[in-house]
Structure formats: structure tokens, C-alpha cells
């Protein structure tokens, strides 16, 4: 029986397999973007209690940096057994003026990455148990010739 796919965290991203989006917020006074919204971890000091409207962040950005972790990290990361190195990317979103972290989509060779290349949000499996696959946002290189993006 196929496993049920559930997000590893609720409300951070949409689960559209082909075109997932990060679920952010925009301040209605300042125009600043916020993500992840659930952490309520930042505010624009000119209007700290401004109302916020839900927005989807740009699906595409440019690669600012990346690194591959060669050692098994501590819990609560759920490592595969045996441990498989994984890559974390930092991607700049132009419209939002934000840099967003995410794992590199599994199966992409990190040695193929280059600075400033266009990246696109993808949905990946972070870990699984007997009944579920837990999904997470990730970044993958845009195939050459792709066109899309921009804030909504």
C-alpha cells in the first residue's frame, strides 16, 4: 500500500506536488514579507503590530550559497540509515528581498551547482515511517529555458 504523504510541518508550504509554494505573509503597512509565519519571529519596527495578509512567496530565486553536510547531525533530524549526506541551499528571492534556506532536492548533484543560478521550489520527502512520507520544501535548479517566477 502506498504511504500517505503529509507535510513535516503544518502551514509553511503548499503541498502541490508540481508547483509547491512557501506560505508567507506581507505587512499591510510596511510591505515587508515574513516567513515562516508560524514562528512569528520577526517584525518591521516601524509597524510591529501591523495587520498581515497571507501571500505565497516567489517560487524562484537565485543561489546565494550552499553546503553539503558530511556528518550525521544530532536529533531531532531524522537521518536515514546508513546516513546519506545532504545539501542545504540559501536562495535569494528578488521580489521579497529575502534569502530562504532549504535542502537541495534529493537526486541533484551538488557539484553541479553554481553561484547565482536560478533555483525553484520543489517538494521532497524529508523522512518516512511505516505509514507516512513526511514532505518538506526544497530547492532544485531550474531546467534551462524555464520561465516563471515573481511574487504574487
Amino acid at each position: 500500500m502506498p504511504k500517505t504523504r503529509v507535510p513535516a510541518v503544518e502551514g509553511w508550504f503548499t503541498t502541490d506536488e508540481s508547483a509547491p509554494e512557501l506560505i508567507g505573509a506581507r505587512g499591510t503597512v510596511t510591505g515587508s514579507y515574513f516567513w515562516p509565519v508560524a514562528l512569528a519571529s520577526s517584525a518591521n519596527p516601524t509597524a510591529p503590530t501591523e495587520p498581515r495578509e497571507a501571500v505565497r512567496l516567489s517560487r524562484r530565486g537565485t543561489l546565494w550559497s550552499w553546503t553539503t553536510n558530511e556528518y550525521k547531525p544530532p536529533e531531532p533530524y531524522v537521518s536515514s540509515d546508513p546516513f546519506v549526506p545532504y545539501t542545504v541551499c540559501a536562495v535569494e528571492l528578488a521580489a521579497e528581498g529575502m534569502t530562504v534556506l532549504g535542502q537541495l532536492a534529493r537526486g541533484v548533484d551538488p557539484h553541479s551547482l553554481r553561484f547565482g543560478q536560478e533555483m525553484e521550489l520543489a517538494l521532497g520527502v524529508l523522512y518516512e515511517d511505516d505509514a507516512h512520507e513526511y514532505t518538506v520544501w526544497s530547492w532544485k535548479p531550474v531546467a534551462d529555458g524555464g520561465q516563471e517566477g515573481g511574487a504574487r
Binding site: R26, G27, V29, T30, G31, S32, Y33, F34, W35, P36, L39, S41, S42, N44, P45, T46, A47, A90, A95, E96, G97, M98, T99, V100, L101
Partner: peptide, 17 residues
């Protein structure tokens, strides 16, 4: 504007400020 531990994203430069 620089991603800091333990953040998932930088602040946004798109708004006022």
C-alpha cells in the same frame, strides 16, 4: 540581510526600511 543561526530566512528588504 544575512541569514543567521538559527533562522530559516533573512528579513525582507522589500518593505519600509
Amino acid at each position: 540581510t544575512i541569514i543567521e543561526l538559527p533562522g530559516f530566512a533573512t528579513d525582507s528588504t522589500a518593505g519600509i526600511g
